[in-house]
């Protein structure tokens, strides 16, 4: 009953070992040869953040928060990005999406700052506060917001000594109006009457 001789076991082990070495070498070579140069994770995270630089997350700007996330901070501290950003971050980092932490503020529609120009005293405080240099003006001259560059971060509102800065939601015009997705009969409640979808308009 010497079917399993020591010799055959050794041969088998040697064969396996050889196979392991060969495949290991191939895998090792492949991982070196076809290495994908990825962005550093911080940059990838930063790309997903809305870059409002508003500081609502408690960091002075988006990049520091990106670094924070890379070091394990929760991903739900960004109100301007809202749920979409949280989902994208969760996707990138392979985490469970979570709800926005309302300690840091709530998700609002996109806003822009608006200076009530006849009340502006030209103190330049808002200019210093703006993280993206989106306010134009000089000392004792009226200031104004470059609407296209304004991220709606809110930071200019507080420093204004005469409270002449308002955050206004971006108005819907025919230029930026968006088609809504058809309300699906599959998801959510059922809407069997087609006119319900669009809403009957007088």
């Amino acid at each position: 009953m010497d079917v399993l001789s020591l010799e055959s076991v050794i041969y088998a082990l040697l064969a396996l070992l050889a196979l392991a070495l060969v495949f290991g070498a191939i895998l090792g070579f492949a991982s070196e040869r076809f290495k994908v140069e990825g962005n550093p994770i911080v940059d990838q995270i930063n790309d997903l953040l809305p870059q409002t630089q508003c500081g609502q997350c408690g960091h002075p700007g988006c990049k520091p928060y990106a670094e924070g996330i890379a070091n394990g901070e929760p991903i739900n501290k960004c109100p301007p990005g809202g749920q979409a950003t949280i989902n994208a971050l969760a996707d990138l980092l392979d985490l469970e999406p979570m709800a926005l932490d309302d300690e840091h503020g709530e998700e609002k529609p996109p806003m822009v700052a608006n200076i009530r120009e006849d009340e502006c005293i030209g103190c330049t405080k808002c200019i210093q506060a703006c993280p993206v240099d989106a306010i134009l003006g000089a000392a004792k001259q009226m200031h104004t917001v470059i609407t296209d560059e304004c991220t709606g971060c809110d930071l200019c509102v507080e420093p204004c000594p005469v409270d002449c800065i308002d955050m206004v939601p971006i108005a819907t015009t025919t230029q930026n109006w968006q088609w809504p997705l058809p309300s699906s009969s599959e998801q959510s409640g059922m809407q069997l009457i087609a006119t319900d979808k669009q809403g009957e308009v007088a």
Partner: peptide, 22 residues
Amino acid sequence: EIRTHKARTEKSERSRVRFEQR
């Protein structure tokens, strides 16, 4: 949606650059 998303991404990229320059 895609157009808006693109515009938003472009804007946030611009904001990032402006912030960094500042």
